[in-house]
Design a protein around this nucleic acid. Structure first.
Lengths: 214, 214
DNA sequence: CTAGTCATATTCCGAATTGAAGTAAGACCG
DNA sequence: CGGTCTTACTTCAATTCGGAATATGACTAG
């Protein structure tokens, strides 16, 4: 426990207005078990990132230190009986309480932020060849399909475990989200074709896509 | 490492691996006309942000300075005939070329990053009351409807102008994206209701006793 | 068994980015 | 005439990120 006299004054108020990253890390800890920063990162990579990005590993460690300072997390070094030296973190009662408070807070959930590299390029479409744009959308569709598979894999992990009912729900949302993303991509392809129809003049038909039968 | 002679404009190599923000700002400049940093910010807020976030104003000015250093942008102070002193930026040939190169670069478009605060809270659903969760989804739906209206407003601005055909395309994508987001929210509401059915009484029915048939 | 590489575990640092505040001057409004 | 709003831009501290660096145990081929 951090019962030291760090003159941190009573943080009894409300959530000390931590950045979302801190809450996400604390959230990771709020599920049963103790974990190292490294494990946290892997878990974030395979689940959280689908709907809420995965913080940098260095950031995770930094947040863990802060969380411990605040008394929201506690850590223990592994003893000498364990082969590898590591520090395992767990959430404290205060941490759980603060997290609940934050989760219930209404004002904090700003609008979702989307940073879509493909769309940035589409937006700059006047600088590229139409064929190149279509190819990029195609790549995006494939990437999305791969992501979808990864989401489904994560869903399998979570399936059936009662404690993970809500994470499973988030993953289900993410599955649908990826499905929607695929449709969005297809529609974009159509729009793109309309905007700059295939030029028969130059014989420059690079994409090599098969026309949809139907 | 990199060559030590830091002369300003000899960066003929490739794209000097600028952060996406720099390319986004340069992209803003790639449309006809000269603009001030302030105007750029307003434009980003009303268009770019729907699919690729809007940088902080201080960041925009910083990027403009860097872009000018690199010879990708040129600026001119307004003369004394203009009421207000301001600096207008425009893209240079080198800038346009570099931007095209970047836009065509295949490796650079990483997967889209989504930071969805609502989903983070759903994921932590075990910490909140079911009714609270449903309320949050409801708020999200309303916010999304408002955003959708903003997207449509932006679309009206862009409509009909030939130079803005691609931005218009991106906005159309964004419109559909928001429509999909609404459906995702509705589905989430349904899932939530299934997971923890409405309680008539006042009791907190936690996870575990799921009367789900099948 | 032994070097080589892989996975785990963590720290460090420079650069990117934010957000808030400060400055200033023209514009609009009563 | 004064007030407040919008435009225009700068500065700065604090946050956050990503990549490199550092170890060490664990597995794998020869």
């Amino acid at each position: 426990m951090t019962s030291s006299h760090t003159s941190k004054k009573q943080e009894k108020k409300q959530d000390p207005d931590l950045p979302p990253t801190a809450w996400a890390v604390l959230g990771l800890l709020s599920f049963p078990g103790e974990r190292t920063g490294y494990e946290l990162k892997k878990w974030a990579d395979s689940s959280l990132r689908f709907f809420y990005w995965s913080p940098a590993i260095s950031q995770i460690y930094a947040e863990l230190r802060r969380l411990e300072e605040l008394g929201y997390a506690a850590s223990a070094r592994s003893g000498p009986q364990e082969a590898r030296a590591k520090r395992r973190y767990s959430i404290t009662g205060a941490g759980r309480e603060a997290l609940s408070g934050w989760a219930a807070g209404t004002a904090e959930a700003g609008p979702p932020v989307l940073k879509h590299g493909l769309l940035l390029r589409i937006w700059l479409g006047h600088l590229a060849e139409p064929a190149r744009l279509r190819a990029m959308v195609g790549e995006h569709l494939e990437r999305t399909r791969a992501e979808l598979a990864a989401v489904r894999e994560a869903m399998e992990q979570a399936a059936g475990v009662a404690e993970w009912a809500f994470p499973a729900l988030a993953l289900r949302w993410s599955e649908r989200q990826h499905l929607a993303e695929l449709e969005l991509g297809e529609a974009l392809l159509t729009d793109l074709a309309e905007l700059s129809p295939q030029e028969g003049g130059g014989g420059r038909q690079a994409v090599g896509d098969s026309p949809t039968p139907g």
